[in-house]
Simulated scan of single mutants.
Amino acid sequence: METLSSLAYPPPPPTFLNAFTVLCMVTMPFTGFSEVNGVHLQYSKFWNVGPRKKFVGTVSGRTGMAIIYLPALLASISSLTLFGRDEGLRFLLLRLSLTVHFLKRVLEVLFVHKFSAQVAVDAMIVISFSYLMMSACTIYSLLLCQSRFREPAINLTYPGLVLFLIGIGGNFYHHLLLSRLRGKYEKEYKIPKGGLFDWVICPHYLFEIIDFIGIAFLCQTTYSFVVAMNTIFYLAGRSHATRKWYRSKFEDFPEGVKALVPYVF
């Protein structure tokens, strides 16, 4: 507990943020296990995989993914205009990192990714709201803690910034490799090659995890660490399901290619 208290701000007084943090902790194990067990959020290659549901409807992949990320981007940009520099470097870097994170995602949707699947409207709404709340609550949690508590004994601001830059750069690079797999009018999936794809099928997820760990280090609140853990659970399950999907579709899928972590998982 002493080590934990030196790494993170104490939890703030009871607010909706604490309730949201507890909710994230309670649902954390299910986010990954549901993906492993075939209950997928209905987007990308899994939009029509698993038990069928009565969908509210579907939208194109590009439209759906843009709507998923746009509210969180607007919240992050708003935080840059609503607050000045008086709150310190940590708070500024956190807001900038979240803005860059979601701006990158929107730009990738518009100019990098190629879509061959639909997005279920109900999944789109749930994911979009989750990202919006994550962005807003991460910023609010740091603002709340900085106004009440001293800085944690171990300052992770600069390690967090380094991890964030590594994560966002690696994620973009592997998204770029994925986008180049298919020609302009090709829609079928192929086994990714190049970069860390020769060792894991989801290196973009690995770097996204590093990205979120970096943001958690920049923030150093209980909420931000819970979000990072939730991301790890979910993307570990999603990567496992992705590897299983590729193995079912391609007989020549390399056995040595893991799901998320080279040689390990």
Results as ranks from 00 to 15, higher is better:
F233H: 08
G256T: 10
F217R: 01
R247W: 08
E108D: 11
R62D: 06
G237Q: 12
L196A: 02
F46V: 01
G160A: 07
S44D: 11
L176H: 03
K190Q: 07
L70D: 04
N48C: 03
S128Q: 02
E87G: 05
V100N: 02
G195N: 00
G50L: 01
P12Y: 06
V100K: 03
F102V: 02
C219H: 05
L92I: 13
M65I: 01
S224D: 02
K114G: 06
S5A: 10
D252A: 14
S116T: 03
G170N: 00
G170W: 00
A123D: 12
S78F: 10
A216E: 13
K45R: 14
S239C: 12
V119Y: 03
M133Q: 06
G169W: 00
E186Y: 01
V126I: 14
P11D: 11
I232S: 05
Q118K: 05
K190F: 09
P152C: 12
L17H: 07
S76R: 06
L103R: 05
R182S: 14
G195M: 00
C202S: 15
K114M: 04
V200E: 12
L110Y: 02
A123P: 04
L161S: 06
S130E: 05
K187R: 11
A259I: 13
K244C: 14
R52T: 10
T21G: 08
V112C: 08
V26I: 15
V264Y: 09
E108C: 01
A8R: 13
Y185K: 14
T21F: 11
